[in-house]
Write a protein that binds this DNA or RNA. Structure first.
Length: 150
DNA sequence: CGCTTTTGACCTGCGC
DNA sequence: GCGCAGGTCAAAAGCG
């Protein structure tokens, strides 16, 4: 953990499962960006990375973490609203779409993604903004347990 | 041939 | 108790 990355910790989980290890390290995303940026032109390869929520918090319209119900286990939920035309955020992982549903609150369909690798209970829900379709609301659900296959 | 993706139907939960 | 919404799983098709 560096120092200035902690300012991007919106979670206030009282006793989450990863409370002691911070589980979801935003620094990892920053690392991804750093590598991607160093790899090639991020705007060409990963246009979203340029506006990465973890990269530019000011672009993040809304960010929520750990908003689980008390009826069930506290699930880690990270909601990032970013300005990207693609709903799949390139975090270096392979996401498999497992369902699409049209919500009534949104004229646009909601996409459900799951980690292609078995063993990672990571789920990803992507929805488009109801008023601004250019804004994508990415909701990461589950532990960031995937190994650094990057 | 394997894997990913797509659509539909079904199920569960919550609200009223 | 019923209805509505959301979420998940399943099967099939297409593509690499």
């Amino acid at each position: 953990m560096s120092s200035d990355n902690n300012n991007f910790k919106p979670l206030d989980s009282p006793d989450s499962d990863f409370g002691n290890q911070s589980g979801f390290e935003f620094s990892e995303y920053l690392k991804f960006d750093d590598e991607l940026l160093d790899e090639d032109d991020p705007a060409s390869v990963f246009p979203w990375s340029v506006q990465n929520p973890t990269y530019q918090a000011n672009d993040v319209v809304d960010k929520v973490a750990c908003s689980g119900r008390e009826k069930k286990e506290v699930k880690e939920r990270f909601v990032f609203k970013t300005k990207s035309e693609v709903e799949i955020l390139d975090d270096g992982l392979m996401w498999k779409k497992y369902g699409k549903k049209k919500v009534k609150n949104n004229p646009n369909p909601r996409n459900y993604y799951r980690y292609s690798v078995d063993g990672c209970p990571v789920k990803n829900r992507v929805e488009r903004d109801r008023e601004d379709q250019r804004y994508a609301i990415t909701t990461y659900e589950g532990n960031h347990t995937h190994q650094s296959s990057y």
